[in-house]
Design a protein around this nucleic acid. Sequence first.
DNA 1: CTGTTAGCGCTTTCAC
DNA 2: GTGAAAGCGCTAACAG
Lengths: 331, 331
Amino acid sequence: MTSADVARVAGVSRTTVSFVLNDTKNQSIAPATRRAVFDAAEELGYTPSPEARALRSGRSGIVLGILPDWPIGGAFGMFLSNLTHELSSKGMTFLTHQIQDADADLASVWGALTPDIVLAMGDLTSSDVSALRARGVGIVRWLGSVEGYPDSAVISQHEVGVTQARILLDQGHKRLAYVQPAESYYQWFSDRRLAGVAAECAAARVPRPRVMVGDFKADSLEESLSALLHGPSAVTGICAYNDEVALLLLTTMRRLNLVAPTDVSVVGVDNSELGAAWEPALSTVEFALTDEAEHVANQIRRVASGRPLGRSKKTDAIIAIVRDSTGAPRN
Amino acid sequence: MTSADVARVAGVSRTTVSFVLNDTKNQSIAPATRRAVFDAAEELGYTPSPEARALRSGRSGIVLGILPDWPIGGAFGMFLSNLTHELSSKGMTFLTHQIQDADADLASVWGALTPDIVLAMGDLTSSDVSALRARGVGIVRWLGSVEGYPDSAVISQHEVGVTQARILLDQGHKRLAYVQPAESYYQWFSDRRLAGVAAECAAARVPRPRVMVGDFKADSLEESLSALLHGPSAVTGICAYNDEVALLLLTTMRRLNLVAPTDVSVVGVDNSELGAAWEPALSTVEFALTDEAEHVANQIRRVASGRPLGRSKKTDAIIAIVRDSTGAPRN
DNA sequence: CTGTTAGCGCTTTCAC
DNA sequence: GTGAAAGCGCTAACAG
C-alpha cells in the first residue's frame, strides 16, 4: 500500500494525497477531497515510507543521541526520558545509540540512517564530525567532547563541585578531600566536579583538596580512608563523587569505628533515596535535569532550523541538601 | 557527492560502483576497476545515502530497541551495551527509543524509520504490531509484553525469585516475606520474582510469602517492617526486590535496633558494590546478562533472515551469593 | 566482467 | 483546488 494506492481508492492524484496527509501549508483542500483521502488511507491501513520521504525531502525528523559506553542511570537516565518527551512534542523522534569504545566505528551508524541532528553525549572524532557535516547533519553537544562545538549544558558539573565544597566550607571546614571512583567512565564528570571543589577551596583560601581515587572492589578502602583522616594534613570534610561513593565511605567508616559528622563530614551528589534514609542522613547536592531537557530540545530545534545556538541561561537548578552527615569540624 | 559522481570520476558505471562498495557476492571485479572506485570514493569523501539504499533494497540494517519508560540502569544497562556490541559485530546497527507512557504514540517512531527488527523491551499495542507487520518489520520480544510473541529471555525473573527463596529456605527459614517498591515500573519484574519466591515456598511446604509494598519516600517504612517482624505470623527471612531495597531495609532495621541476620535475614538481587561493602555484607542473587545479549542477538539474526526463533537453552547464569545478612533463623 | 534500464515511494515545482 | 512531470540516490534484473 503506497500513496499511489490511496490516490486510486480516493479517486485523486498522488499529489493531493501528499498535500492532505502532510497538511501542507499554503495549500487548501476541498473538505470532501480531504475526507476521501483520509478514508482511503484508513481503509488501506496506509503508512508512509519514512525512507522515501527522507530521500525526497532531505529531512528524517530524527534526532540521534550518541551515548557514552557506560551504564546510563539516575539523573542522566531521567534526562533522556525527559528529552524524548520534549522532542516528541516538537515533532521529532529521539533515538539513541551507545558508543562501544573509543575507536569504535560510528561510521556504521551514519551508514544506517541520516538524522537531522546528532546530539553528542559521548565523544565524536573529527572524522565523525566531517562525515556528519558532509551529509548536512547538525551537531549539538551536551557533555562529552566534540572539537569545535560548544557544550550546550546549562547544568555545570563544575558548579556541582562548588556547591559540595560550599556546604563544608560554610560549616567551618578548612581541609577537604575529594573521593572519586577509579572507573574511567566517571572521569569526565569527576574532573569537572573536582575542579569546582578546588576552585571554591582557593576562593576560601584553604588548601587544595586532597584527592583519593577509590577502587571500590578492593579491600584497600579502609586503609586509604585512614590515611586521609590522620597525619598533619588530615581532612575534616569529604566531597564524594556521588551518593553511592559517599555511602561506601560511611559504611567503611562504621567498620573503622568512625562516625559522621563527628570524625569527618561527608557530602555526596544525587539525592538518592538510600542516602536520605541512611543513618546519619546523607548531605548531598541535587541537580534537576528537567529544565535541562527543555533547554537542549530548544537548542536542537534552533540548529535544525538553521538558526544559531541560543544563550544558555543560568538556572539555579543545583541545590544543596544539608542533612546529618555534615556538621562543624571537631577542631 | 552521489554514487554517480564516484562513477564519473572512476570512469565506470554506477552499477560497478555499487558492486565494489557493497562487495557484492557472485560478482567479481577487475582489480584495477576496484582500485579506481575506491580511490574515487575516497577522493570525493563519498558516503552512501542510507535512505536511498533502504528504499531500494528494502532493508535498513537497523535493529530498534523499544525501552520502557523507566530509568535504565544496572544489569539492564549493561545488557544493552553488550547487545549493541553483539549486533554491531553482525553488521546491524542497534538503536533504542524510550517509550514515554502507556498510550504514547509509537506511530511517530514507525513514521521516522523502518527498522529490520524491533526488539520489544517495553509493551507494544496490537496496533503497533499490525503497523510493523504491514511494513514487514520483524519483532523479537525480550521482557515487556507483546501479544502473540513469545518472550526470548533466557534469564527468568521467576528463577531469580526461586534462587532468593532457596537461600533462605536452605538455611532453615520457614516464614518468608517479599518486599517490593511501590513504583509501578518495577511491577513487571517484581511480579515474576515474587511468583518464584512463592513457588519455592510451596515446594518446600511452608506458608506463602507475606508481601510488603514499600513506599520508600514515606516514613512508614519502620512501621510496616515492624508489623512484618512481630505477631503470630512474624517472618524470619525477607526477599527484597533488589539490593537497594535490601539496603533500605537494613538501614531501617538499624534504626529499630534490629540486626541481620539475628533478627531477620535479608537477601537482595543485583550484587551491587554497595551491598558487598555493607556491614553486614548483603546476601544477593546475581544474574549475568552477557550470554543473554548473545542469545538475543542470535534470535534477532534468525528473525531477520526469515528463520524461526531458536530454542532458549537454559543457562546457569543465575547465581546465589550468600554473605552475612542471611543465616539460620533464631527459633 | 561491465553497462543499460527501470523503479523503490515519496515530495516538489509548475501548470492548469 | 488539483494534477502531471520530474527526480531524490540507490540497487536489482537483465543484456552484453
